[in-house]
Design a protein around this nucleic acid. Structure first.
Lengths: 205, 205, 205, 205
DNA sequence: GATGAATGAGAATTCATTCAT
DNA sequence: AATGAATGAATTCTCATTCAT
């Protein structure tokens, strides 16, 4: 209390709120519709205050992208409790699939940022960081699954890369044509991919 | 009549020129840098004349996207001459991979349009058309490969979808991080995917 | 006619119009009041068209500054017809003095640009160019006056620099306190300066 | 009473600190860079507190201008100890010349305020006050010098005005083109001006 | 007295589209 | 068909000022 006599506002919490507002706008109107004005309106704050929390619009987008990745990572982590082996791998992949409305929106946001990253080294770097993290996490799960199934299978890195590519492709599909691919189809595609690497998935049984 | 015909021909030819100019600008400056002014300059025409050939900027983008797909399809077709079975399938996939500078630029263009398609039903529809065509062409090649190898393998549609997803994911990688994935790695990933469906690829031997 | 089918507009003439409008706004509202919007309004054109004629606001200001200098130089030149010796020198100096409303406005514009030049290398350079020209012109007149009066007087460059400094100081006075110094006072000050260098001025007689 | 007094003292002291901070920012970033935020940061106080010490930004600028003039006057006064006649006059003028870095910065600040004063009656008035003071002080020195040299020379007011104009012109030169005029050149110009009024300066001997 | 959050107006610049010639 | 001038809305960013704590 003594240290700060100012209006009690949690600076980083407010930053997150604005980043979330940014994600909401992107999911509603696309990245091109995510103007600072619109983000401010969504966050319920004045336009000018944005500058108080972010240096530039790019700063907002980077924070939003981080937030988006973080949410996915937390969701996957939370569901891994107690699982191991192929079951754990499969669970992680299923969690990464955009099977509901929320997932679809997430993919659209992701896709929007992909393109934005083309001309924006900072955002591309941010995504590369999260890609690397995700790949490493998958490799661990893959090793676990290979151990369980006594596979001397292919290089876990290669498997992880393949899985991520397929997931990314599926994500793009869902983002662009929401109603043209069912969750079942996505499961089937991912199971086929996993089966190709020797993993017997639950759905196969 | 002839004059009218020639005018019509010129008209479409000019449209293609402008669409190509649009692709050139997108590859150089990104979709956000593809302003009507810049496209006109690239095409070597005046800014105002654009309106005579296209109803709107979106119209230009749609034409450019069509052109991009058409070029890829023609490239794949041209290299299939005389090939059949798994070799043909593999050739088509390799042609679809962005292994050189040109391919990388193509993927960046593609990626830029993906995101743009999010808020643009017309562009999304255009892409869906080309996706469907591409999937059907792949299914035919897959059936040929399965026949050659006497596989009673998985549903060709599922295989095609999986392949396209993986290709799309790889395309996004290359577009965003040009120097972080080698052609050899891409071949390895696609071969692993094909192997998972029972195809013995040339590289395996 | 055949070469250009477009609206007949003289590009450079329009540039000058806008530069003049800029000067008008500066004289009315100061440099800080010279927004691109206000300049456009003064010129009777839309705000957006400014970009068609100038790359940036700084570009407009530079053109306006050039214009301001050019007008002064032309005014001085025009009145030198037939004069020589000390009379010519004195005439030039009197023409450079802000003795009427127009002169006062000119000085205010000049003063505004001085300060702006502090943080703007391009504008400072522009002014340096005009300063050098003005000093050289003065040196020639000074040599003529010294020859006429058989003076082996001080270095013409030193004389010119001193005169310009005094003129600049007077200009600043007039710009800041329009009604607190009379033309007669200015003449007296300049005559005293000239007399210090040995020139017998008309007013002295 | 005492508490109230001390508060008042602190209040004015703090005002001076902020005015000095303002001068520091102006010298570093120009008047356009002197935002209230920047001034507060320079002064080491919070942004909001500024309002407790000044009614408006203009208020700050006026205080800063006062401070700037006061510092110059004190410097000149301090160096006049024991001097009289032409020596005192010359000393005052030399002290008023921007011969070092500090002097140059002072001139830049002065110049910045000149232009600002154009559209700001309060600041212009402030400067007029200091101009009058400065002219009166000079007149006294001029009379002393004329007495010493038994000159029945020109009106001291006219001499003072001429000197100030030349000083102001030199100040503007230095402010705008720091490295294009040497202290020696400035001394020469001022000595020539003084010589024109019959004063034999030390440098002449 | 002091803090920093908040506001809202206004700045330059960009751009798709329209229009007179 | 063709030009390029013109429009007006929209975008990001900045900033003096006000306000709740």
């Amino acid at each position: 209390m003594l240290t700060s006599m100012s209006k009690i506002v949690n600076h980083s919490a407010r930053r997150l709120e604005i980043a979330d507002a940014c994600l909401a706008v992107v999911s509603r109107a696309g990245l091109s519709g995510a103007t600072t004005r619109e983000i401010a309106k969504e966050a319920g704050v004045s336009h000018g205050i944005i500058a108080h929390y972010f240096n530039s619009k790019n700063d907002i987008l980077r924070a939003a992208l981080q937030r988006s990745y973080q949410q996915l990572a937390e969701r996957i982590d939370a569901n891994l409790n107690g699982l191991s082996g192929t079951a754990a791998l499969q669970q992680a992949i299923h969690d990464a699939l955009p099977i509901d409305e929320e997932g679809r929106i997430g993919e659209q946001i992701e896709l929007a940022f992909w393109a934005y990253g083309l001309g924006n080294a900072e955002l591309a770097e941010e995504r590369w960081r999260s890609y690397t993290e995700w790949r490493r996490a998958l490799e661990i799960l893959i090793r676990g699954a290979q151990a369980q199934e006594h596979l001397e299978g292919p290089d876990p890195t290669l498997v992880a890369e393949t899985i991520i590519c397929t997931l990314d492709g599926l994500g793009a599909q869902v983002a662009l044509y929401p109603d043209r691919i069912t969750p079942e189809r996505m499961f089937a595609i991912m199971d086929a991919t996993l089966a190709g690497f020797g993993f017997v998935t639950a759905t196969d049984i």
